[in-house]
Amino acid sequence: MSTAASPSDSRESGGGAAPVLELKGVSKSFGAVQALYQVDFAVAPGQVMALVGDNGAGKSTLIKCIAGIHPISDGQIFFEGQPVDIHGPKDAAKLGIEVVYQDLALADNLDVVQNMFLGREEVSSLRRLDETGMEKKATDTLASLSVTTIRSVRQTVAGLSGGQRQSVAVAKAVMWNSKVVILDEPTAALGVAQTRQVLDLVRRLGQQGLAVVIVSHNLHDVFEVADHVTVLRLGQNVAEYRVADVTQTQIVEAITAGTLSKVPGQADAEVVTA
């Protein structure tokens, strides 16, 4: 199972559903720095895929490539089986890929509804903002995710706790019939109770049939919510496991000492066979 050679095959035999998002041989370099090297990665609907790795392993670069913030240098991205080019955040959003960044990208001075519709405000006649429609939709989305801790959707985000902010950011991401939701370190800045809220939320996303990618340093969280885990090390995919089949020790081992395939000849051979 720990293989960088043919990850998609192993998943299809193990996971069942066809992946909604699949990366094949994706590389990204910033000048002389090779941030990603021949990474294969896939996630299927209803799956919660954890993406783990040490600092500098390329986790953030990978999700930024998927989100269209960085153009990829090499390789191909497939969405629902079709090869796609993602040139910017709008392309990713159009496909149904939403990213919740670690900083959440919420504007503190705007209220919950305004943040959830930021950049995609709905307008009625006379180009007027459809405030009632948006407020209703936001309330419904929060309710569907069982987010009950927010007193009013008309309070500014500045007054919310970390867990509530995370909930707003996640609700913002799933409101648009998205198919893939990527969460970057969703629990990094949270206390125990709030981490629980957010992990419950992540689990519900998976149960609703979304493909969820969760980037995390915290293996406890990974074991709690994820059903698959992909390990990156120095920009390469060094291992993939089903969480049920693996121990924390094995994952830590892969994070710190996973076998690298950065022997160019070997990497090239893989591309040819793929």
């Binding site: 990208a105 504007a107 503190d108 930021l118």
Partner: peptide, 16 residues
């Protein structure tokens, strides 16, 4: 306008 003033980076990522 409010979004750019509150968090320009969030506004940019929201496609504004």
């Amino acid at each position: 306008v409010y979004a750019v003033g509150g968090n320009a980076e969030a506004a940019r990522r929201a496609g504004i």
